[in-house]
Nucleic acid binder design. Structure first.
Lengths: 253, 253
DNA sequence: CGCTCGGTTGAAAATCGTCAAATGGCGTGG
DNA sequence: CCACGCCATTTGACGATTTTCAACCGAGCG
């Protein structure tokens, strides 16, 4: 790690403990495809880090938009909350994923971002990003790519859900989660859900009871081991078959 | 219209008949918020126009990505098609809306864009856009905004659908359509659907029969007049109440 | 130790998908 | 110009899935 000293012990200070160049997430984060020198400049941009404790908001709907956030560690959900207090989860974000893109549209965040466990993020002031962008075409390109990917993700994942039944949705959810965990070097088969059944439900467009029942059925079928939020995927292939099956009839005859 | 002569009679030539500055869609299209001089430069970028006849593809999944398209007139759908020929519609685009953003992620289009009526688009080569971008921060900003909006649109519209029942989805669909038509100076209450019930269905995650039944029910309730694809919205407020109601219980108890 | 919250499970009710048939428009070809 | 056939749409009946309502369990916390 050439650009920065070893990770600092205290991590809530103004500086950040790992430069982009030495960050283990650089292959999943904004710096994808940037040359070392470019990465260094992006690095200067990162205004600092912020710790968000479980249950706290990184930003809330209505907040002025002035920064993007890269999740460094932890787990977030983004959601809309209607006046009467009911919420719809729009996504779950883990390390290496970007938060705050929703604010670009009109300089105001349109959803809440809540930490589901104690988390840390890199703060990337948007003004600086914009200022630096002309000098770093690769960065701008990457930013657009990330956004495009985001569009595809929603577009893909969510739209597909439209044509799936409950079991298939839950299978898709678990399979997606497993894939993302694996990409980050975590076990794709054994993990702890950071969100409640209710949150999964509103994300998938299902009732919490239905989600619970799906978990139970998978357990009964030997596909999954479930103990509350501890999940062990026994037969990932089976889950993926379910997903594929559901996509297939897509719009069915 | 200072910059260009009146719309030319023949419109399939290499040039385009209305410069961005004089285009009636400039408030809805990429040029939003650009100064006149900036618009002129964007204008130079537009490599030309392309006519796409009903049923033809503007681009298909797998096509190399090299341009964005602004719909100048007409109506498109974007969709994924699985191997067995079933398709899922991911969106409908009308004049002033951008197509092709899906290709940014990895330089390959990930969905099909099909004209639902004879249409014309402005072709904006992405290489030029990227090259010009550093000199036109406002343009870049606008591009990001459009993408952010797109994300919110999907995220918003689609996610909401997750928690809605069939009637509410169809109401949301019609109400959204009415709003977009109005923004373009068309009648928001009387219009012709350019897509089939099936396409609406796959877009909303419903069966075509269910869509048809919803139309019929709305007709019976005096909310709508339906004659095949001719639609007249009699009571828009009622539709909007349905949508709001559906969002409210959002994730229900 | 009692409480609350999250999760599980059951049974009844409602919604939506599935299958089937009939109608009507539109374009093609005679 | 008309007849034919295909496709989109509508409508009905039935069945499957999912929601709703309700009760219960277990873990964590004051």
């Amino acid at each position: 790690m050439p650009a920065s000293p070893a990770p600092l012990p205290g991590c809530t200070g103004p500086g950040h403990d790992a430069a982009c160049a030495s960050c283990s997430l650089r292959e999943l984060c904004l710096p994808v495809g940037l040359a070392n020198e470019e990465m260094a400049r992006l690095d200067e941009l990162v205004a600092g880090r912020r710790a968000v404790r479980r249950g706290e908001a990184l930003f809330r709907r209505g907040d002025a938009f002035h920064a993007l956030y890269a999740v460094r560690a932890g787990f977030f959900k983004t959601s809309y909350t209607s006046e009467d207090g009911r919420e719809r989860v729009t996504g779950f974000q883990m390390a290496g994923e970007l938060l705050g893109l929703d604010g670009l549209a009109d300089d105001t965040h349109r959803c809440d971002a809540i930490a589901l466990e104690d988390s840390r993020v890199c703060v990337i002031p948007y003004a600086s990003l914009e200022a630096l962008s002309p000098a770093l075409p690769a960065l701008q390109r990457q930013l657009l790519r990330v956004m495009s990917r985001e569009i595809m993700r929603e577009h893909g994942a969510m739209m597909q859900l439209g044509g799936m039944r409950a079991e298939e949705r839950v299978a898709a959810f678990l399979s997606d989660l497993a894939g993302r965990l694996q990409a980050r070097g975590f076990s794709p088969s054994s993990f702890v859900l950071r969100m409640t059944r209710q949150e999964i439900g509103t994300y998938l467009g299902l009732q919490l009871e239905t989600v619970s029942r799906c978990f139970s059925r998978f357990r009964d079928e030997g596909v999954l081991e479930v103990k509350q939020r501890d999940i062990r995927i026994v037969d990932l292939a089976a889950l993926q078959r379910l997903v594929a099956g559901g996509q297939d009839w897509g719009t069915r005859a």
